[in-house]
Amino acid sequence: MVSSCPSDNTSEVDQSSFWSSGNLNWDQHRIGWAIAGGCAMLTVLISVISVSGHCRNYTKPSEQRQILRILYMPPVYAVISFFSYRYFRSYTYYSLIEAAYEAVTLSAFLLLLIEFVAATATGGDATKAIERKDKRPLPIPFCCWRYRPTKPYFMYTLKWSVLQYVIIRPAVSIAGIICQVYNVLCESGPYSIYYANVYLEAADFASISVALYGLLLFYGLTKEELVGRRPLAKFLSIKLIVMFTFYQSFVFSALEGRVIKATQYWTAANIADGLNALTICIEMVFFSVLMMWAYTVNEYKVPGNKKTSIWRPLWDSVNYWDFVTEIAGSLKFFFNHARGASSTHSSKKTDFAHAFGINGRSVADGGRSTEESIRLAPYPYSDPHNADSASPVLS
């Protein structure tokens, strides 16, 4: 017999307003409402300062495009958490939307690391960045297997391991919203094979595990090239948000019915979800400060340069066509590999630039060398105020 899914909300709705008899009605929920709103506003303010700093000093578009996407994470989480607290009866919808941005952040971080590594290439040639890497064991728990970084399939698989999450996580959120509409999600109820939540969470867990493992593998492979760029601080500022939101949600859920009791207008699930949303709003203030430090704009300030316009950087950051081209490139490689194309099965080393979509060259021409060119998909960008900046080339 299929067990019924308990309702997330009470049938009785609080009819009182924030203003009661001409005075403020400060109950516990409205105090939390004010705290969540204040923290969300502070997070947005801090993030705006950080984002505007990069927009006004947009000297390395290929890197800062990804940084801007990462800097959006705290305000996105804070604002959505505020609304999920304020409109707690629709908490599930907000939480599913919030989780989808995590996929964007992790994918942007991978592409940022790729740009960092390419920038260290000898003589401005991205092909030199990885060709010296030898065969080595995979990270735990697959350390019994060894891999050769210069194999064609390896680098495309590594990139795909992270980018797949930008497809699966939004798909899981969309499926969860549809299931919630038809009352077959049962997120607050016990895990059951008769409801969608268990399957969606399993898919999400598998997908994010693969993505995080891919990031760990790439960091281990290129940590020498990333020295001085504080990759660990940058990664932790993202990962800590993911960890805090996941584990505290688990703790509050475990307290439902034990420590957290239902009230007249709030179910135990409502209270647990509300506490989680309130906590996220408070935490994002600190994470926005951490990200401002980890992704400091000081690395991109060029003395004497005129400040850049904010509109092109903002458009770059919300234009996700580069994700599409990266995903399409990987799928094309796998398709050609399945067809037996010789270039995908060759034992010849494949360079970093080709596998990761970065075009690098160093060509002697009349005693001059052509600087490294890095593509900023989907269109070229040139900074007239930075004479040393490369002219991007579309591949």
Rank of each mutant, 00 (worst) to 15 (best):
S3K: 14
S3R: 13
P6Y: 07
V13Q: 07
Q15G: 03
S17R: 15
F18N: 06
W26V: 14
I31L: 03
M41C: 15
L45M: 11
I46E: 02
S52C: 09
C55S: 10
R56P: 06
T59V: 03
Q64M: 09
R65I: 04
I80P: 03
I80W: 02
I80Y: 01
S81G: 11
Y85F: 15
Y87W: 15
R89K: 14
Y91Q: 15
A99L: 10
E102I: 12
E102K: 08
T105W: 06
T105L: 02
S107W: 07
L111I: 08
G123H: 03
D125Y: 14
A129I: 11
I130S: 13
E131P: 00
R132H: 12
D134M: 05
R136M: 10
P139W: 07
I140D: 13
C143W: 14
K151R: 15
F154S: 07
W160Y: 15
W160R: 09
V162Y: 06
Y165P: 00
V166C: 10
I167K: 03
I174S: 07
A175S: 14
L185E: 11
C186I: 02
Y191A: 11
Y191R: 09
I193G: 12
V198S: 05
E201P: 00
A203E: 00
L212M: 08
L215P: 01
L226W: 04
G228V: 03
R230W: 07
K234Y: 02
L236A: 09
T245F: 02
F246R: 05
A254R: 10
E256M: 11
R258C: 00
N270K: 04
N270E: 06
I271K: 06
A272S: 08
A277C: 14
A277I: 01
E283I: 15
V285S: 04
L290Y: 14
A294F: 01
V302G: 07
G304K: 02
K306D: 06
S309E: 10
W311T: 13
R312M: 08
R312Q: 12
L314Y: 12
Y320H: 15
Y320N: 10
Y320G: 08
D322L: 12
F323A: 09
L331R: 06
F335Q: 06
H337E: 08
H337I: 00
R339L: 14
S342W: 05
K348Y: 01
K348W: 00
K349A: 13
F352P: 01
A353D: 07
G360R: 09
R361W: 12
R368W: 05
T370I: 12
Y381N: 11
H385C: 12
H385V: 13
D388R: 05
D388V: 00
S391I: 09
P392H: 08
P392D: 10
